[in-house]
Amino acid sequence: MNESNIKKPNAVASFFRNLSGQTIWMVFAVLVITISLMEPKFISSSNILNVLRQVSIVGLISLGMTVVLIGGNFDLSTGAILTLAAVVSVNIGPENGPLTALAIIIPLLLGVFVGLLNGLLVGLLKANSIIVTVGTQFMVAGATLIYTGGQHVWVWSPTQFYEAISGGYLMGIPNPIFIFLILTVITQIILKRTSFGRYVYALGNNDDASRLMGIKTNLIRMSTYVFSGFTAAAAGILLASRVKNLDPTIGLGYEFQALTAVVLGGTKTSGGEGRIYNTLAGVLTLGIISNSMTLLNISYNLQLLIRGLILLTAVAIDAKRNQSVAR
């Protein structure tokens, strides 16, 4: 076999990879332009901030989801973790300083704990991560319902700090957007500038090879789930601070939105490839699609259907891309 024969498929592969790297931003740009032409209300600064604020919750989950996916796994328990974190946070009753601190720390610890459990099960057993995290999702969602007795939980007069988590502004920009963007940058640094990040990519590319190279694969895999649990819990606290009167099933389904955003952003479902900034584009694209569907008065149920179709399309593109790389 001569050199050109080997090079050719690589060129095709990298072409597709680069294309997919930019497509989501192109799709995003085209969408923004089209929608602004159709609906001038869309580009008002209040609507833009509104969209950004809305996506910050899905966005946070998507960060953890991206890391888990790059490592070659899935985490479908994040919606349940988000709900648990939100419910516990509100139920602690952040009405004075110490309680506010607890209402932030305890949910985050819970998220980390569930992440640890996911990581243990998936890491040690090498069981399919989708079905494992569906199991933990059931457990956590059920535990949340038991904890609340199926009733709403609420907090009457939270401290200013707790209110400010989602209600406050910094330089005219809502705090959730800052929280989301800061965590995005941190995740990007973790993935690109630390050895942990490189190990996650290696793990997703080839589990066995990584282990033979001396990478502690189980530990890395567990850490990706812990990170995902952490971001999901953080998203839960954001939601709790905004809504303050929570239904104990409020966050179920967020995991699918996050998964859609991440796959739209070109993260490979088979692992080893993905970029946080493209996830950001995926999150924003989904956000403006949701926003414009609401502006166009499309019913919530039809939106569910459209979201499902978007996920299917994203997954089909992902599979197509994998095949062209394989060829």
Partner: peptide, 8 residues
């Protein structure tokens, strides 16, 4: 994916 689509 189809699960979410059928539900929708």
């Amino acid at each position: 994916g189809t699960m979410i689509t059928f539900e929708g």
